[in-house]
Structure formats: structure tokens, C-alpha cells
Simulated assay, not measured.
Amino acid sequence: MTRQCLDKDIKITPVEGRVHVIFDDAEIASSINAMHLDEPGCPRRVYFPRADIQPGILEESETRTTCPYKGEASYCTIKTLTATGVDQVWYYPDPCPLVEPIRDMLAFWGDRIEIRYSAV
């Protein structure tokens, strides 16, 4: 399969300090190695290394979407003892060259997701 990737003014930069993911009032991720992805016309996203996510809470989903700038996204569902967030996590296992730094890093989005920042 040939992948067509378009160019866009996307910026990927390291997050300063520590960034946390709160899901349903519980911290499920914390990282000093997260990356900001700024894409014109879209909300700023934070991508986390998989190693910085609480183990055992993500289940792979069959959901896939395609972005002409980033490639095909794979999704995960968050499952904790108190809540489930269907397809609220995504990542790019084979990203377009433009966004190679976020390969296999996880982004979170949903009604019970909160991203918080703190000093290291």
C-alpha cells in the first residue's frame, strides 16, 4: 500500500516540566518526556511515551482513522476500575515523515480526560 502524506505547518516540541493525564479523577499517566503537537486549525495535543502510561488500562480497539498529514491512527479504550473511555486514546504506529517524532506515542482526548502541567 502506498501512503500519500501531505505537508502542513505542524510543530512538535518537548513539553517543559511534567504533564499528567487525569481520567475520571484519577491520574493514568505522568511524563517528563511528552511532546506537544501544534497543528493549525486543531487543538494542541500532548503525546506521551507508552512507558509513562499506567500499565493494564488500555485495550486496543479496531477503530482506525486517517489524517493526510500524520497517517493512519490506531485507537485504544481506557478501562479502569471506575470508568471506561471508548477510543479516547490514539497513536500513529507508522506516521508520515512529517510527524515521525510521535511514532507510537499516545494522545488522549475525551469528556473525562484532563491534561495538567506541573514543574519537575
Rank of each mutant, 00 (worst) to 15 (best):
I32T: 15
E27L: 08
H36G: 02
T65F: 09
Q54C: 07
D9E: 15
S118T: 12
A83C: 07
R64S: 05
F108A: 03
A29V: 12
R44Y: 02
T66C: 10
A73R: 09
E100Q: 13
A107V: 08
I12F: 10
D94W: 04
Y47A: 01
D9F: 08
D87M: 06
G110W: 11
D9H: 13
K11S: 11
Y91L: 10
R3L: 13
G71F: 08
F23C: 02
P40W: 09
I22T: 04
V120C: 14
D104M: 04
T84E: 04
K11E: 12
I102N: 00
R50Q: 15
F23E: 01
I53M: 14
P49C: 12
R18A: 14
Y75R: 05
P14F: 09
R116S: 10
K79A: 02
A73M: 06
K11R: 14
E60K: 15
R64H: 09
A119K: 09
G110N: 08
I102D: 00
E100H: 12
D7Y: 06
T65R: 05
R103C: 03
A83V: 04
C42V: 03
Y69L: 05
P101R: 02
K8V: 05
I12S: 07
E72M: 13
L37W: 01
E114A: 14
V21Y: 06
A26L: 04
Y91P: 00
C5W: 06
V99N: 03
V21P: 01
D25C: 08
L37E: 01
A83E: 08
